[in-house]
């Protein structure tokens, strides 16, 4: 064995030495260690610092006063009417986008699942390509399309469907469209990856037993892809509540993300920004927990009204 090892470059072999001597579980731990350390240092620790700063006093010359403890930032968050309305708007956006996205994503994933050949590749391509394109591009392209002088309005006007141009952008409807476009690829793939493992015969069995096509999807496909739907909902919801680019470019409203950026970069009010983020994060976790519990219930048999 040692003779064979010597065939290897000596540097490689010596790097392996300390690992090779370890037991199996220690070896596994050594391999996982860098990742664990990375997650601790770049993810867990930063969040504790965020939490700590949210309890610090503001300072006029520095971004926050070190070593101080106060609940003032939280009091400000809860008493500010502006911040409260921003929270409301962000959550409304999150819920609207999630509903639209999940319904469309189930449909689109089903279409991919049921198609084959070129159509299937094309549909998959249409999901993967936007996913690999920056959110900035994905968002601004809606301006020339949806603005009052944009393509959609021109088409509708020339077809005589509308008399005067409608303002889709900037408006909340425009944000919902833009944000849906941003999260839809992730939602479709999350659902499709579960659906692809499903047995088509199960749907056939439901039709064979008298379920119409929409009903067979509702009764058999939806409960089975529930894990994918849950992932899709969580992603859609979390990212839409925290949406930044779409509200900024496509509406005149202010979302949580825009406000927190303003607090951080323009206002330099770190404790307030941190507290606002903590509050949003907690509220989102609560919502996700509720969402999870509700959707999980639909994993089994359910009655239609």
């Amino acid at each position: 064995m040692s003779e064979r090892n010597s065939v290897l470059p000596s540097s490689l072999a010596s790097a392996w030495e300390p690992i090779a001597d370890q037991s199996r579980s220690n070896r596994a731990l050594l391999l996982m260690a860098p990742l664990i350390v990375f997650e601790l240092l770049v993810f867990v620790v930063p969040f504790f610092i965020l939490l700590r700063i949210s309890f610090a006093e503001e300072s006029s010359d520095l971004v926050y006063a070190e070593g101080t403890w106060t609940l003032q930032a939280y009091v400000d968050v809860f008493t500010s009417g502006l911040l409260r309305s921003i929270v409301g708007y962000s959550f409304m956006l999150g819920i609207a986008v999630t509903l639209v996205t999940v319904v469309i994503a189930i449909f689109y994933a089903y279409a991919i699942w049921r198609s084959d050949g070129l159509i299937k590749s094309l549909l998959l391509f249409s999901v993967v390509l936007p996913l690999l394109t920056t959110l900035v591009i994905r968002t601004y392209a809606f301006q020339p399309l949806l603005s009052p002088t944009g393509t959609v309005n021109e088409i509708l006007l020339s077809l005589g469907i509308i008399n005067s141009s409608i303002q889709i952008v900037p408006s909340t409807v425009g944000v919902v469209i833009g944000q849906t476009y941003i999260v839809l690829p992730y939602a479709v793939l999350a659902i499709y990856s579960v659906m692809a493992t499903m047995d088509w015969h199960v749907v056939e069995a439901a039709r064979d037993l008298g379920a119409s096509r929409p009903r067979s999807v509702l009764e058999v496909v939806v409960p089975q892809v529930m894990p994918g739907i849950i992932v899709a909902s969580v992603i859609s919801f979390a990212w839409s509540v925290g949406a930044y680019a779409a509200p900024d470019l496509l509406s005149n409203s202010i979302s949580f993300a825009m406000q927190v950026e303003d607090l951080m970069l323009s206002g330099l009010r770190y404790p307030l920004a941190a507290a606002f983020s903590v509050v949003m994060l907690v509220l989102m976790l609560v919502c996700i927990g509720v969402l999870f519990a509700v959707l999980n219930r639909f994993g089994g048999d359910f009655e239609l009204a």
Binding site: D199, E204, A205, D208, Q224
Partner: peptide
């Protein structure tokens, strides 16, 4: 008509 499938195609999420 009612079919018994080769792989039985039972609904896995239902009792």
């Amino acid at each position: 008509t009612s079919t018994v499938f080769q792989d039985w195609a039972l609904f896995p999420h239902k009792s």
